[in-house]
């Protein structure tokens, strides 16, 4: 009878630990590659600066903007917040000359229940698709406000927080508290990568023209 081959328990622990470590490193590398590979746009945001004992300092990213007075909501946007995930088509608009902004702006074109329908909303310019389709949702005021301001629109892309140092978090909070709801005049922008896998990933923030990037260092 051949003796049964067994791996000793200490070796088993080391093998499993190695697999766990590989999984974590793989996750970071895969996410980093997907972030770098996506279409980069700027989206106007609101933020507050919370702190938690085990999470440190972070800025809650709320992508929200005030549409131009009289402008209607993008097609497919819900009137109230709807937790059901849909597909959001976001166009990449080059910044106007002389605006001082280098990074293209993201403009929500519409929301659809299927990815193919959202791709159709995005369309193509000169045969090239400009922008991206990512999972998320959009809520927008059904009724136009009585005064001469546009509807408020909130975009949920699964990008909800930006971890920052205490100094940076406090500076972002101060900048945001000094201004009204986002729009083209926004001073704080979320820099988002629209991934080919249909996920949006945060690349960083742009605060008063200064870019704070997520990096390995």
């Amino acid at each position: 009878m051949t003796p049964k081959m067994t791996v000793p328990a200490p070796a088993r622990i080391l093998i499993v630990a190695g697999l766990c470590l590989s999984a974590l490193v793989g996750l970071v590398i895969r996410e980093g590659a997907a972030r770098a590979d996506g279409v980069e746009v700027r989206l106007p945001m609101e933020a507050i600066d919370p702190r938690s004992l085990l999470s440190g300092h972070y800025v809650i990213v709320t992508i929200q903007e005030r549409l131009a007075a009289g402008a209607s909501c993008p097609p497919g946007a819900s009137a109230a917040w709807d937790p059901e995930r849909r597909w959001v088509a976001i166009a990449r608009e080059e910044a106007a000359a002389g605006s001082g902004l280098a990074l293209p702006r993201g403009r929500v074109l519409g929301v659809a229940t299927t990815r193919a329908a959202a791709e159709a909303l995005l369309g193509a310019r000169d045969g090239v698709r400009v922008g991206g389709v990512v999972a998320g949702g959009v809520s927008c005021d059904a009724e136009a406000p009585a005064d001469d301001v546009g509807r408020a629109m909130r975009v949920e892309l699964g990008v909800d927080r930006f971890h920052a140092s205490q100094t940076e978090a406090l500076r972002i909070e101060a900048v945001l508290s000094d201004r009204a709801v986002g729009g083209d005049g926004a001073q704080v922008w979320a820099v988002v990568s629209l991934g080919r896998d249909g996920r949006a990933r945060l690349r960083g923030l742009e605060v008063e023209g200064e870019r704070i990037d997520l990096s390995w260092l």
Partner: peptide, 16 residues
Amino acid sequence: IFAASIGLTGQVFDIA
């Protein structure tokens, strides 16, 4: 630590 690492790796690299 592994459980915390998953969450903290997400935090450190802002992985949604």
